[in-house]
Design a binder for these strands. Structure first.
Lengths: 243, 243
DNA sequence: CCGCCTCCTTAACCTTTGTTGGGAACCGGC
DNA sequence: GCCGGTTCCCAACAAAGGTTAAGGAGGCGG
């Protein structure tokens, strides 16, 4: 795979979300990345492991999830190209959750050693990466609100709108259609509801002509009603460093 | 207030949780901190603001929360002495949630400028602080699981056990009793349930002689049953840097 | 000591979501 | 093109949790 296409989504994201100057970009481009193809549904890192690398999503989708003792699974976040879902493993040695690919994906592995060296050398890059983990936490906070306070239809609407906004940053959600390759069971795990209820909710939003979710794609049918339902305020995404 | 008592809980926490050497400790002690008394129930920082300082809890309790457009409130985390609940504001300029004191508290304000200077000068301290924000995120992840997957009684049990474990680190939870100064309404906001249901759940755990929550204190009546109910696995707290 | 306010408590009823169990549609591999 | 496994879909019933309403206990200021 072409070197440029590996770094492009990451650099695009970081430039928009945090701001990078030329030397920073050069330093990141100098990071050694081991690119690998990954099957769908395969664990990238598992709960309890001590990874030695961070994983950059180059192409594809993955999720982070935790499984309770009684076997229930909660999806914590959905990750898209340009993101480093286990950046936290740099300073939290032991994983407290799983990371799993949703579709066949291209992943780039960056060693902790090289990332640590980079952060020591370029405090500016360190801050940008730190900021990435802080945005991650901000998204978790909103996810708590979503699961804790909103009724199931709003939960789904909110999650859909969030994913869409994040996809826009790396140019993957033009028009009214975008990818969300989760099965209904996984949607349930993300929203904290059963797959049966996820199905009911999806059906309802389809019947009300708000969104149509099928075969891993979302089609927005009514922007106004969707916005109303999701009550989405994008401030928590911190997509603008100057705001 | 004595200078030492201001830094003590923070240093104790950081030493245990992340490990600090002598020069690091000295550097942190050199941070200028403006100590202030705070009334109960008063906002420390509000959603939308751009703080210029971080707030260290010296004595007391505070919570972080978000309020939805329709006025429902979700408590995101409970903070205890030694913690810096808005450390994220260092690189996330605009607050996406509120921080509120629960009881009359002693707070220490540390300017962003001095913290940034410290992190540039002492990469080791930067890593320890970064790690703090990562642990914060790890707790959010578990909070998502709690709200998303567990039935209300387990949710309450889990939250209680978590708080207790964290209080132990700064020596505030010896024996079977500890402080948790939330009203039943606030407990409901933390667990994503209504105050009426929070009352039902508290009553049930009292009747089953598992825990007794009243007047802002928790008394553990049956360690075994509590552990069983909470399904608590403390790995996500990352309280040991070497584990 | 009184009155007010907050917090706790409870009951009856309603709504959302979970459970169980089944069938249909789709997809990839042979 | 068929077969077996996912995934989707749906209905009937059960349970958890939400709503509304109202009384009681406790603390604090006048």
């Amino acid at each position: 795979m072409d070197r440029e296409t590996v770094y492009a989504p990451l650099l695009r994201r970081l430039t928009i979300v945090s701001g990078l100057d030329e030397p920073d970009i050069a330093a990141i481009r100098a990071l050694p990345i081991a690119v690998r193809q990954w099957d769908a549904g395969r664990a990238i890192v598992a709960d309890g492991q001590r990874p030695t690398d961070c994983c950059l999503v180059v192409e594809g989708f993955c999720v982070r999830s935790k499984t309770t003792v009684s076997g229930q699974r909660q999806i914590l976040s959905i990750h898209i190209p340009g993101e480093i879902p286990d950046l936290q493993s740099l300073y939290l040695r032991r994983m407290d959750h799983d990371i799993i690919s949703l579709v066949p994906s291209t992943l780039g592995f960056i060693s902790h050693a090289s990332l640590r060296a980079l952060t020591r050398e370029k405090p500016n890059v360190a801050e940008v990466l730190w900021r990435e983990t802080l945005i991650d936490a901000a998204i978790f906070r909103e996810w708590i609100v979503n699961v804790g306070q909103r009724p199931a239809t709003s939960r789904l609407a909110h999650t859909v709108v969030e994913l869409r906004r994040r996809l826009v940053v790396t140019g993957r959600a033009a028009g009214d259609t975008f990818e969300m390759p989760l099965t209904q069971e996984q949607i349930g795990e993300a929203l904290g509801i059963t797959p049966v209820h996820a199905n009911r909710v999806i059906k309802q939003l389809r019947e009300e002509r708000i969104i149509d979710i099928s075969r891993g794609r979302v089609v927005v049918l009514d922007e106004v009603k969707l916005a109303e339902l999701a009550q989405f305020d994008d401030r928590y995404l911190h997509q603008d460093p100057f705001l």
